[in-house]
Nucleic acid binder design. Structure first.
Lengths: 107, 107
DNA sequence: GACACCAATAACCATTCGGTTATATGAATT
DNA sequence: AATTCATATAACCGAATGGTTATTGGTGTC
């Protein structure tokens, strides 16, 4: 699970990849050609990005006849969200410690 | 604000940089040499990473005498968190639509 | 004032990355 | 069966990335 975390971060680092993922989130499943039509890059480039997104679990594709439909899997964002919570958690913890210290100084 | 989003994602894509940020979140402000001591890379490499983290607002440094203390700024994670919420929001929205459709079909 | 220490920058290098074009594979269409 | 369409893969290329060592610029210390 924590192994995927790195893949997720890496996948989302590229704006083009984020744009593809966003679109799949917003508009639901789409074929490669449909995605390519709005991406301003070539079809092979899109396929490459999809492969990477798939590798991190952010996207999954199902074959329908001669076209493949890709859909976003928002559950794959969990490691990222978890990490953010962890980081802010550390911060709150420190804040609590400070508060505690101030209380003790008060007495 | 949405300009920083890309920088934040890019910054956090590198595991070394995430590790540095994590440490600063967990243990509070630290000097460059202290960070370097635990990073398994050279001091200039650490300085480079800190520069990038600073560029995305994730970190800020204050000079104390001859050493510079860097601290994490968890508030800079907001764009990231916001984006995640937006994405999951799209998903919920679709779910609502489906629910709505089912309701209408029910009558 | 000479010297050691801390951090930043410069110059360089190997690897990775994001893109391209060309090609292969397989499913629909005719 | 031949052809066209949809996607994936291969081979390649320039730019960006993450690291290194060497050096510089300040700030304490002796």
């Amino acid at each position: 699970m924590t192994q995927f975390r790195n893949e997720v971060f890496r996948s989302l680092a590229d704006p083009t990849r984020r744009a593809i993922f966003e679109r799949l989130c917003r508009d639901g499943a789409q074929s490669v050609s449909t995605i390519t039509a709005q991406a301003a890059i070539s079809q092979p480039a899109v396929s490459k990005h999809l492969r990477i997104l798939k590798g991190s679990g952010l996207v999954q594709g199902t074959i329908h006849g001669r076209e493949t439909l890709y859909r976003a899997d928002v559950a794959a964002l969990a490691p990222l969200q978890g990490w953010v919570r962890e980081m802010t958690g550390f911060w709150d913890e420190k804040f609590d410690k400070l508060e505690n210290l101030l209380k003790r100084m008060d007495r």
